[in-house]
Computed example of a mutant assay.
Amino acid sequence: MKKIYSLFLAMIALMCCFSCNNEWEDEQYEHLVSFKAVPNTEGVSWTYVRYKADGKVKFDLPVLVSGSTPNTLDRTVRLGLDSDTLSYLNREQFGEREGLYYRQLEDKYFSMPETITVPAGESQVTIPIEFSLAGIDEADKWVLPLQILDDPAGSYQVNPHKHYKRAMLRIAPFNDYSGIYNGNLYKMILEKDTTNSLTFDTYRSYVVDEETIFFYAATRDVDYLDRKNYKVFVRFTDEPIDLLNVKKKLEIWSDNTENNNFKMEGDQPYYTIDEEWDPVKPYLKHIYITLSFAYSIEDYSSVPGLRLKYETEGTLSMQRDLNTLIPDEDQQIQW
């Protein structure tokens, strides 16, 4: 009986040996073509592009071929715009409030190829998108909606996942001064009520040109339908206002003074810039920008027939971190 049992085990082992093969050499996942553009909770991918008034700027958007085995074919991938998905995203995020919709980036602001080739042996290439953003108004929420188109010849398959087959690029120009400022030391007072001043954790600034940014005034931000009526522009000059050449002059204004009664208050507006290297990470450079200015403005559209006057004072500050090991400036800044 023992011999029969041993013979049975030997036969089972032999059958297993014959049935085994080098299955790890076979393709475990399909070769699918995808974008590398991770969306945020609103379904868009923030894409930072250096603002240059006198020329074009190239942004490289990665395209990947997935799979557990090497890509052995030259694959010419077709690219196109995806206005339908942008429309769906707007309705999903903002309902009927069209003033909050993302706008499709106009053709005059960009150019890109209609196809990109992924050569055999490679699993990643980049799409060279050229942006020319001079004159763009960042009060409009610009998005470049892209999609990977199917190949009639069948040389590749598009990744079916919606966040891989499409890229909703939220275009964000930047200059040396734009970004998110800390507002904990910036007070906002309603109608001289000094006992109930308001503060906001952050203020996002937007690019106007290479030396100018704008903020939304009072309680406004990008999610207000009337935000364009409450812009405060800030121009950075090289004019020093102290003997040590530390503080430099800011020019502040509004483009809607006739309606919002914008007025500068207090002392001469100024800014300072300090730099230092990280003591632990020697490749990391910290740039500190501090703005000091005060103004008053009237909110004339929140309550019909009532004008609410806001006065502001204090400082806004921003820390910009640069990873100097990265050659591309848009990737170097730790947004």
Score class of each variant (00 low, 15 high):
Thr290Val: 03
Asp267Thr: 14
Gly314Asn: 03
Glu211Ile: 04
Glu251Asp: 09
Gly183Glu: 03
Lys263Trp: 00
Phe174Thr: 05
Pro62Ser: 02
Arg227Lys: 13
Thr237Phe: 10
Val280Gln: 12
Thr315Ser: 10
Leu185Tyr: 15
Arg78Gly: 01
Ala37Pro: 00
Gln104Ser: 15
Ile252Cys: 07
Tyr51Trp: 12
Ile12Asn: 14
Thr85Val: 13
Ile252Val: 14
Asn40Thr: 07
Ile148Tyr: 02
Ile180Thr: 15
Thr199Phe: 03
Gln124Tyr: 02
Leu306Asn: 13
Asn22Met: 13
Pro160Leu: 03
Glu275Ser: 09
Arg170Gly: 13
Pro39Val: 10
Asp299Phe: 06
Asp274Ser: 13
Tyr186Asp: 08
Glu313Leu: 14
Ala10Arg: 06
Trp253Glu: 09
Ala37Gly: 00
Phe262Arg: 00
Ile136Trp: 08
Gln334Glu: 09
Trp277Glu: 07
Glu313Gln: 10
Ile326Asp: 07
Arg204Phe: 06
Met188Cys: 06
Leu100Glu: 03
Phe233Gln: 06
Pro145Asn: 08
Ala172Val: 13
Arg97Thr: 10
Asn261Phe: 10
Asp278Arg: 06
Asp226Trp: 05
Tyr203Trp: 15
Asp242Glu: 11
Val63Ala: 01
Ser317Gly: 03
Val57Phe: 02
Tyr102Lys: 07
Ile289Phe: 01
Glu265Phe: 09
Ser6Tyr: 11
Tyr101Lys: 14
Ala53Ile: 09
Tyr295Ser: 05
Pro128Trp: 05
Phe293Ala: 03
Tyr88Ala: 15
Ile148His: 01
Gly305Phe: 04
Ile4Ser: 12
Gly305Arg: 10
Asn90Ser: 09
Gln124Trp: 07
Asp60Arg: 13
Gly43Thr: 07
Pro269Ile: 01
Val38Thr: 15
Lys263Ile: 07
Asp84Thr: 10
Ile273Val: 09
Asp74Ile: 04
Ser296Tyr: 04
Tyr48Val: 06
Ser19Met: 08
Tyr230Thr: 04
Tyr288Pro: 02
Val65His: 01
Leu322Phe: 04
Tyr102Ala: 02
Arg75Ala: 06
Thr199His: 04
Phe18His: 11
Leu61Arg: 02
Leu64Ile: 11
Trp335Val: 02
Tyr224Ile: 04
Gln331Ile: 13
Thr324Glu: 01
Tyr51Cys: 04
Asp26Thr: 15
Leu322Ile: 08
Gln319Val: 10
Asp193Tyr: 02
Thr115Glu: 13
Tyr48Asp: 11
Leu322Gln: 01
Gly314Lys: 00
Thr41Met: 08
Arg220Glu: 10
Lys309Thr: 11
Ile273Asp: 03
His31Cys: 05
Asp221Thr: 07
Lys56Asn: 09
Leu14Phe: 12
Ala218Ser: 05
Ile116Val: 15
Ile326Tyr: 10
Ile287Lys: 14
Tyr224Asn: 11
Lys108Thr: 10
Leu61Ala: 01
Glu106Gln: 14
Leu144Lys: 06
